[in-house]
Design a protein around this nucleic acid. Sequence first.
DNA 1: CGTTAACATGAAGGTCGGTTCCGCTTTGCC
DNA 2: GGCAAAGCGGAACCGACCTTCATGTTAACG
Lengths: 191, 191
Amino acid sequence: MSTIAHRPLRADARRNREKVLAAAAAAFAESGLEAQIEDIARRAGVGVGTVYRHFPTKEALVEALAGEHFERLADIAEAALEQHGTPWEVFATAVWRCAGAAAGDVAWCELIGGHPSTTQAAAGGQARLAAAMSALIGRARQDGAMRADATVDDVRTIMCGFGHVAAAQRAGAGLDWERYLEIALDGLRAR
Amino acid sequence: MSTIAHRPLRADARRNREKVLAAAAAAFAESGLEAQIEDIARRAGVGVGTVYRHFPTKEALVEALAGEHFERLADIAEAALEQHGTPWEVFATAVWRCAGAAAGDVAWCELIGGHPSTTQAAAGGQARLAAAMSALIGRARQDGAMRADATVDDVRTIMCGFGHVAAAQRAGAGLDWERYLEIALDGLRAR
DNA sequence: CGTTAACATGAAGGTCGGTTCCGCTTTGCC
DNA sequence: GGCAAAGCGGAACCGACCTTCATGTTAACG
C-alpha cells in the first residue's frame, strides 16, 4: 500500500514496539476490545505516550493485531490444503483449528464476526483465508460430504456465531463453544 | 419478589413511564445497548430526570425490557406446545418465531446470548422459555427427528450465536441470519 | 565525548455519557 | 380555590478513557 520508506527504528524503539504489541495482545485477549490503553502500557512497562508513538490510535493497534490474527487463520486454512484425509475431515479440522486458535481470546472472538475496524489492515489475511476455505469447501462438496449449497459465507456466518458463544462462555454464561461447533458443522454436512 | 405495596402512580407519571419504556425499546432496538439515556428521553419527549425517576439506572431500564422480551419468547414457545404438526416442525417453527421476533432488535440480539444484566428481571421468562423448549425438544427427540443428545442448552447456544450473526448483519457484515438458522437447526436434526 | 534527532514519559486536556439535584409544574384531594 | 405531595426538566456534576504535549532521556554517529 504505502510506499513511504520508513527509516529503521532505533533499537529501543523496536524493542518497545514489540513489548507494546505483546502487551496489547494479552490485554485484548483477556478483556476484549474495551481493554484500556493505560493497562496495555502498564503491561508493556512503558508510558502511554510510547504506545501512541507506535500506534496513532487505539484502533490502529487493534487493526495491527487483527491483521496478525487473520494471517494466522489463513495459515491454518492454507496448511489444511496439503493435509491428507477425506475432504470433509480436512475441512472440519481446519475449522476446528481456527476456532481453537480464537477461543481463548476475547477480542478475537469479538472481531471474528466482521467488526468494522478489521476491514483495513486485515484485508490481506481475510482474502487468503477466504480463498483457502473456498478450496476446502469445494473439495468437500465435490466429495458429496458437504451440503451442495454451502459457501464460504456460511463458514463466516458460523464463525461469527462462534465468536459470540465463545465470548459468552468466557463470561460465564454456561455455554460451550465446542458443542456449538459440533452442531454447526453437522449442519453443513450433506444429509 | 418485593412485597412493598407501591401506591398507584399519578396519571401523568404512569403515562410518562409508558412513553419512556416505548422510547427505550425503540432506541435499544435501533442502536443496541449503547443507546443513550438522553436519546431515549428525547424520543419520549421528557427530560432525563424523568427517565431516572422511573428507572434508577440505565441497567434497570434494560432489565425491564429484557424481562418483557423473554416473556414474549416464552409465550411463543408455550404457544408452540399446543400446535399441530410433527414434533420437529413444531419445534423448528418455535425457534424460527423466536428468532424472527428478536432479529430486528439490536439490543435483543446482544442480550439473547446471556448478557449478565438480564439475569435478575428476566429470570421468570427465561425459566418459562426453558421449560417450554425442553418439552418441545423432548417430543422431537422421542420422535427420532432430533439428535438424541440435544438439550435446551444447545438451543440457547444456537440462539446466542444467532444474536451475533443478526447484529452483524444489521451492521452490514453481509451475513444472513436466516441462513444461519437453517444450518444450525439442521445440525440439531437426527442423521 | 559531544551533538542531535529520535524516543519516552505521564500529567493534563478533552470528550462522552451516566447520574444527580434543585427549582418549578402538575395532580389529587379537601 | 388552595395546599401538599408527587412529578418533571435539564443544567451541572462526575468519572472513565482516549489522546496530546512539554519536558526529560537515550541511542546513534562522527
